[in-house]
């Protein structure tokens, strides 16, 4: 186990990089996912079509394929960047499809009477959505949204495997492949790194879930 204590700073940096990938991807995914959810429930057919195809494409392709598309496709469109940027955007696009579905199902779970009441006091579509439906929908989507975010943290390991480098997965790969350390202790260290994030996140989610739960 001394390999973990010897390389503690490497592991720490890996944890920080993983968290950075997750932070940027998470924010971008929440933003994109909310926009796409709004598209999917909008009265305009083209926007609904965009939302539906977005979800179909990103939910059904493997993250690795999405990442390769980012790395090869974005430069052809004139968008250049590092692997970190491509990886973060790819993870965000992939996750946004799941965020969109979580929010949409939340919107569908809001009783129609709420929106009917909002309309009868004279609120428009935008107001009904942003003041009445979304605040209630967000509360009921916290549990599925939280699981999406935890899944994203775990998926960030794939971004590492894709070649971003420096994250927890890459630390494990480097120590075993390049430096020839025994795999068992190295990878136990990597797993501990992820568990340090995912288990508290799961517990936190449980607490938040109980706090925001609405009795219906």
């Amino acid at each position: 186990m001394h390999v973990i204590t010897d390389n503690l700073s490497l592991y720490r940096d890996g944890l920080v990089t993983t968290l950075r990938i997750c932070l940027y991807s998470g924010l971008l995914a929440l933003l994109l996912g909310t926009i796409m959810a709004a598209c999917r429930v909008s009265p305009l057919t083209p926007l609904r079509a965009v939302g539906t195809s977005w979800v179909t494409v990103f939910r059904n392709s493997p993250l690795l394929v999405v990442l390769f598309f980012m790395a090869f496709g974005l430069p052809e469109l004139g968008i250049n960047g590092t692997y970190f940027v491509f990886g973060t955007i790819g993870l965000a696009l992939y996750t946004s499809a799941f965020v969109c579905e979580a929010i949409r199902s939340g919107i569908n779970a809001v009783p129609p009477g709420q929106a009917e009441a909002a309309r009868s006091v004279g609120l428009g579509f935008g107001q009904t959505l942003s003041l009445i439906v979304l605040p209630q929908a967000v509360r009921s989507v916290i549990p599925p949204l939280g699981s999406v975010m935890i899944a994203m943290i775990k998926n960030s390991a794939i971004v590492g495997a894709f070649g971003v480098g420096g994250d927890l997965f890459s630390v494990g790969e480097n120590l075993t492949s390049a430096q020839g350390e025994a795999a068992l202790p190295v990878l136990i260290g990597v797993m501990l790194g992820y568990l340090i994030i995912t288990i508290p996140a799961g517990l936190l989610l449980g607490i938040v879930e109980r706090k925001v739960a609405i009795a219906r």
Binding site: K154, S156, L187, V190, M191, Y194, T198, G202
Partner: peptide, 14 residues
């Protein structure tokens, strides 16, 4: 709690 890619990598290396 662990990513599936780590589980696969673990199996292949350990």
């Amino acid at each position: 709690g662990i990513p599936v890619v780590i589980a696969i990598f673990f199996a292949a290396r350990v």
